[in-house]
């Protein structure tokens, strides 16, 4: 019975990952909605708005990368709520009064979030292919796109975990994470930035999601990265480091009273 060292940290984390995934699997409503909603959004954009939006290419080829990022936003807000649920019930005191690593609890949530997102993203991607999405990407391009998406999801999930720790209730966690769903609309996800009014353009052009979307789009449609790759990588890495630190520090402090 050792409570020290790397092995213990790994074992604690594995236990908490098991827990979070089990809880996710049993929360069928949430899982269902987080897959269905992006599918509906994609159908809405492709079939309803798409005809009126000109992007110089088939609209579905333009919009799929944006939908993929929107999907991760839904997944992340569920993570914020799951963390807030732990923080506001007695569960957190139980876990914190056990001799375990404090980041194990949050890592469990984040890992479940990444797994959930991987599934919903895969489903959305398959559906998009059925709807006429025609990527023009080689194996390395796919690898690049998937790698960046995973990094983005990990970073966003840690941000969601931090919001869950800050939130005073599950409801406020849901509200706090609302902007994660909103930010993609102010990017090049659905329309080209050039079509936006002048005051909005600099924001949309330089917010973190635009380079990520441009990069994923560049990989998948074979239109090239135009230097956005490094910007996207920097944003995701920065967001990850910031969110991870914020979440773990706040987590330790919050429960310390």
């Amino acid at each position: 019975m050792t409570h020290d060292g790397f092995g213990a940290a790994v074992s604690d984390t594995a236990t908490m990952i098991d827990r979070s995934i089990r809880l996710t699997r049993r929360n069928v409503d949430t899982l269902f909605v987080s897959i269905l909603l992006p599918l509906l959004m994609m159908a809405l954009f492709v079939y309803v708005f798409g005809g009126a939006i000109s992007t110089g290419t088939e609209y579905i080829n333009y919009v799929v990368p944006g939908i993929l990022l929107l999907t991760t936003g839904y997944g992340a807000s569920n993570t914020a709520m799951a963390v807030a649920d732990d923080m506001t019930t007695g569960m957190i005191d139980r876990l914190r009064s056990l001799p375990i690593r404090s980041f194990a609890v949050l890592t469990g949530h984040v890992t479940a979030s990444v797994a959930r997102n991987a599934i919903s993203t895969a489903i959305v991607l398959l559906a998009s292919l059925a709807m006429g999405f025609r990527p023009n990407a080689g194996p390395l391009d796919w690898l690049g796109a998937i790698g960046l998406l995973v990094l983005y999801v990990v970073a966003l999930s840690w941000l969601a975990a931090a919001l869950g720790v800050i939130a005073k209730s599950v409801e406020s966690a849901s509200t706090l994470s609302f902007f994660m769903l909103f930010v993609p609309y102010l990017s090049s996800a659905f329309v080209q930035v050039e079509t936006m009014p002048a005051f909005l353009r600099p924001i949309s052009q330089h917010q973190p999601i635009t380079p990520v979307i441009e990069t994923v789009r560049g990989f998948l449609t074979g239109t090239g990265l135009n230097g956005t790759g490094w910007v996207a990588l920097a944003w995701c890495t920065g967001l990850f480091l910031f969110s991870f630190t914020l979440a773990t520090v706040l987590f330790r402090r919050r429960a310390r009273g």
Binding site: M1, A8, L23, G90, M91
Partner: peptide
């Protein structure tokens, strides 16, 4: 604590085994 700290969506057995694993049994 004052509020039962159990995972509602885990069974009684799963809750207990989880704590046992966290105690490195």
């Amino acid at each position: 604590g004052q509020h039962a700290a159990v995972d509602d969506n885990q069974t009684g057995l799963e809750n207990l085994v989880m704590v046992g694993r966290l105690m490195h049994l």
